[in-house]
Design a binder for these strands. Structure first.
Lengths: 291, 291
DNA sequence: AAAAGGGTATGCAAAATTGCACAGCTGGGA
DNA sequence: TCCCAGCTGTGCAATTTTGCATACCCTTTT
């Protein structure tokens, strides 16, 4: 009776590249994976993986079914989402993902209260970068900072986001003395951005940072000037990070609350969405830079 | 770890209409089915089936995933066939289906010999009417009497088939005396066929039969005249069934040996195909009416 | 009206699957 | 070179799943 699940194991091994990693992904012991693959191979009289120096590699037979089994995974994921979308109990797990700044500043408290008032709901919050795949149900609900969400997700823009320029008093002094402006940027921006060249005669890139909190810390430490969404520096009281009085155009990026279409009717997810919407709406001025 | 297989159980119940029938289809006890469905329902917080007077009926949630899970079934079936197609062992099961006349007259002996010489191959022969679904692997190999096989099957036409008219001596006497010709036909033929109206002035339908052996028995019993493929009456020595000396055009129906494309490289199936081809080729004159 | 034949749910024992512990292997780094 | 970390395969014990037996329900038939 394991015929479909054996394919699931196969796919997991193929995707992760090792029995052990697959075992972690599926939440079972690695010996189970080993035996399931053996059984699948034995039943069909075919080797699926070849052992190489680094993990496993697919044989021809394995390759021939990889995409097919991927379709099966799509289908079962879809079915699973559809079923969960009909769940009208305030029970079960909710997987949330959001930038950790949003959680720390705005949602930690209300979500704690939500958790207390719904003891049968288990919140599972992921704030690590690597985007959760909502289609795979790695997350049920996502708060994201993005210009436009992917079209298979539904949800709403909680607010647009105002950006501003921030620097430490020392850096501002330097700028006023006409020194070249040291910039703190997000990675992979290789040219001087227009918000810098339009407002300053001279600027150079001092540092790249890939995290908002760390960018704030860098500015606070005096590394240089950065363009940040207002909500973070304006919420974290900190005399070393000063907002410059240079208005920037409103960004088309926004704060979105997203979930998969299939899950829209799930009671627990609607409840959680409402809490998030409710509490975030208090902070609209912060996001629009009017705090 | 039962997530994919639970969907398999769901689909089987939905298709068969009852837990018990599903249990028979999947080869497990019905209590297993009951518990699997319960677990799927509980895990997603949704009822999938509603009890009615006759078996189960799908709920809205159940309907919403039915076709999706069907896609998963397609995919896993496909994968399973592809894997079996790579099997180069002369071991395992071969599911054969063919009209019982073909088995009884021509293939019982050679297949028995094949079975003896390959003790690790288990032959599973289905001669019951209801067509086996090769896509679902209800059959690996099929001998069929058909004008043109479905395009997802590969195989070859072993031979065309000559038909002729047969009747008992008494019926022939009656015809010669100018009596109306009693016809024995396949079901759902409501008009007098041209092979009758072209050759006889007067004919009427005496009986419908849906099986070749039974049609032969009916002719033997003197019910009337029938058009049959020559191979059967010409192989079964029987003085009460006489072939009329009226030539009919060669039918475009033929005897086909078919299998699914995905299985074309399976060693055991190739071996079995060869035996069948080899032995059937001895009987070409019988099929062409020249015995 | 009762019995028979079809279905499902559940306690309990049997069987199958799983996890654990250990052994053996390989590659990378001190 | 040796050690360490991480991986896989396997015997054995523990857990989970299954089958069996039974109870029960409903419909149809006698």
């Amino acid at each position: 009776m394991h015929s479909w699940d054996d394919f699931r194991v196969f796919l997991s091994v193929a995707e992760t590249g090792s029995f052990s990693a697959s075992a972690r992904e599926l939440g079972v012991n690695h010996s189970t994976i080993s035996r399931r693959v053996q059984s699948l191979e034995k039943r069909h009289g075919v080797k699926l993986f070849e052992r190489t120096q680094k993990g496993y590699r697919l044989t021809v037979a394995g390759q021939s079914i990889l995409s097919i089994v991927g379709q099966a995974k799509e289908a079962t994921n879809h079915a699973s989402r559809l079923l969960s979308g009909h769940d009208d109990r305030l029970e079960g797990e909710i997987k949330l993902t959001m930038p950790h700044e949003i959680f720390d500043l705005f949602l930690a408290k209300p979500l704690a209260a939500f958790s207390l008032s719904h003891p049968k709901i288990q919140l599972n919050i992921g704030v690590k970068p690597g985007l959760k795949n909502i289609a795979n149900r790695e997350a049920d609900l996502a708060v994201r900072i993005t210009p436009e969400p992917p079209e298979y997700l539904i949800g709403k823009r909680i607010t647009y986001m105002q950006h501003a320029l921030y620097a430490s008093p020392q850096v501002i002094n330097g700028i006023e003395r006409g020194e070249s402006v040291p910039l703190v940027l997000w990675p992979n921006i290789h040219a001087i951005p227009s918000w810098a060249s339009d407002n300053f005669g001279n600027a150079h890139i001092a540092m790249y940072v890939d995290d908002l909190t760390s960018m704030h810390k860098a500015v606070k430490a005096g590394v240089g000037l950065a363009r940040m969404p207002c909500f973070y520096p304006d919420s974290v009281i900190c005399p070393e990070v000063v907002k410059l009085d240079i208005p920037l155009p409103l960004s088309d990026w926004g704060l979105w609350l997203l979930n998969h279409v299939d899950l829209r009717n799930s009671a627990r997810i609607r409840a959680c969405k409402q809490i998030i919407t409710e509490h975030m709406s208090q902070y609209l001025p912060v996001f629009l830079g009017n705090a």
